[in-house]
Write a protein that binds this DNA or RNA. Structure first.
Lengths: 272, 272
DNA sequence: CGATCGTTTGACGGTGCTCAATCACCGTGG
DNA sequence: CCACGGTGATTGAGCACCGTCAAACGATCG
């Protein structure tokens, strides 16, 4: 519980020294506003983008925390590369994972209404983020309609993501939950232009289990089951989706998947 | 599955006749922009609010659907009064509830990125919403910084809501899930200035179960269990919270609640 | 007053949580 | 070079919890 409230200097120290020790390093140049708009999927809609302003760009080392739960919020972050894990620390020390964020996703937005972060974000791999100072954000949005539109669209997309998250967790069977998680991850890889079949999980089984609301042993077993059914090939954190349509079909099973999936075929495969 | 794709005229018919039959009725006057800003919690921050524009205000009868999944999105809705249920219809006809929305909450925002609604919203009681035309929204926001700020804050609050939703569903024990749901509901009632102890549930057990990812019978049993523990008094859809701190403590149990809650005391109460 | 829907309660079987042991992988230090 | 812990992943055994099926009860509305 001592970890929840963090002295604010910890993140206020924007100087290079302390931040570098934490794994957070502002890069020299930063990026242009046009870059940011493009990253967020804002198409060239004719409105001019002021060229003079540069958006700070930070590198975040693997394992470094971008911001802590309870910390003062001073920036809105847009992930440029890498993966982040968002979570809250529960009273009993249990780490409740709330989601994973990748490129073009916004972090730290839910803090705006309270002034303080309501969750923590740590990098699961070498990552980079644009850090938009909240002070300037409104002015930038007002001056640059393209940025404003792009931000709204991104927020809208993340609202849809949140709904998908609820759908993921509402599935009753553990394999179905994991299947939905993998399909969701796969579609996000496709959005980013990567292969939707080869996944490299940046998060541990425990993280996945926390998000899906199941024990990490069950996650492990579910991986095995989906692999036995021929949908996947799993080797540690490398997952290859062999039958994406089949996996999606598995996704649709609301309840115990007793009817939709030919369980006998699965058993046969298991015996073989 | 025929319910997913709806002929778009169904909602495009903004005339009084067809809409009235559907339970949607535009009111005569509408509301002022200043009203809307106040509803969303925007404080008087000095910026002037243009007085001339009036925001359409719709009445929605109990049971009427505000918008259908798959329908063209033309408005952003802000709930003024009442309660809405948001859900998607899964392929097998199962109604997956994604959340409940009350006053000052935004509906239909996740559609902005795709142009089509990704979920349906029906009123669970007599309700009313402000309908902001998407065409005009950007202009209004640009002209009225107070509205813009209020909208951003509201969206931020709903992001936090979404995180709380994930926390709710990640609990493993059914009673804990229900307890979190009730605490969440209670805090929302408090936000609206109502009593946080007397809840009148507008949704069915089945709806709650769908949201929490448990069977509706389990919801019913969990209500009974929480009542047996002395936290609640339940009479159909009227719920009185007798021990809010206790209920919140119950909320904190991550796993099987075998240790935190004095189970023996509960059993004793049960026997009595 | 009857029909329909929502709620409650019971019994049973299966799924997944807990506890535990084992194994694979990795960086450290002898 | 290999022993040594440490972490994460896998697998097994036992049992509590919850989903399913079923029936009874209650509320609401025509």
């Amino acid at each position: 519980m001592s970890a929840i409230l963090i002295p604010e200097q910890r993140l206020a120290e924007t100087g290079a020294g302390p931040l570098r020790r934490c794994g957070l390093m502002p890069t020299a140049g930063g990026g242009s506003l046009a870059d940011l708009v493009r990253l967020m999927g804002g198409e060239a809609d004719g409105t001019p983008v002021p060229g003079e302003v540069t958006v700070p760009l930070w590198r975040v080392r693997a394992g470094a925390t971008l911001f802590h739960e309870g910390a003062h919020s001073e920036h809105l972050y847009v992930v440029r590369s890498g993966t982040f894990k968002c979570f809250t620390m529960l009273e009993d020390g249990y780490e409740q994972v709330l989601g994973f964020a990748g490129p073009a996703e916004v972090l730290g937005f839910e803090a705006q209404c309270r002034g303080r972060q309501s969750l923590s974000a740590v990098a699961l791999e070498e990552s980079s983020v644009h850090a938009l100072p909240l002070q300037e954000l409104e002015r930038w949005r007002h001056r640059c309609p393209a940025l404003d539109r792009a931000l709204m669209r991104t927020l809208s997309r993340q609202f849809a993501h949140a709904a998908a998250m609820v759908e993921m967790m509402a599935a009753v069977a553990a394999e179905v939950r994991l299947a939905r998680f993998l399909v969701w991850l796969s579609s996000r890889m496709a959005e980013l232009g990567h292969s939707p079949r080869r996944l490299l999980l940046r998060m541990s089984r425990r993280d996945i289990g926390s998000l899906l609301g199941v024990a990490h042993e069950t996650v492990s077993r579910s991986f095995g089951t989906l692999a036995d059914w021929g949908y996947l090939r799993v080797r540690n954190r490398e997952v290859e989706i062999l039958d994406l349509p089949g996996l999606k079909a598995c996704t649709h099973c609301t309840r115990g998947l007793g009817d939709e999936i030919p369980r006998t075929a699965a058993r046969r495969r298991l015996a073989a």
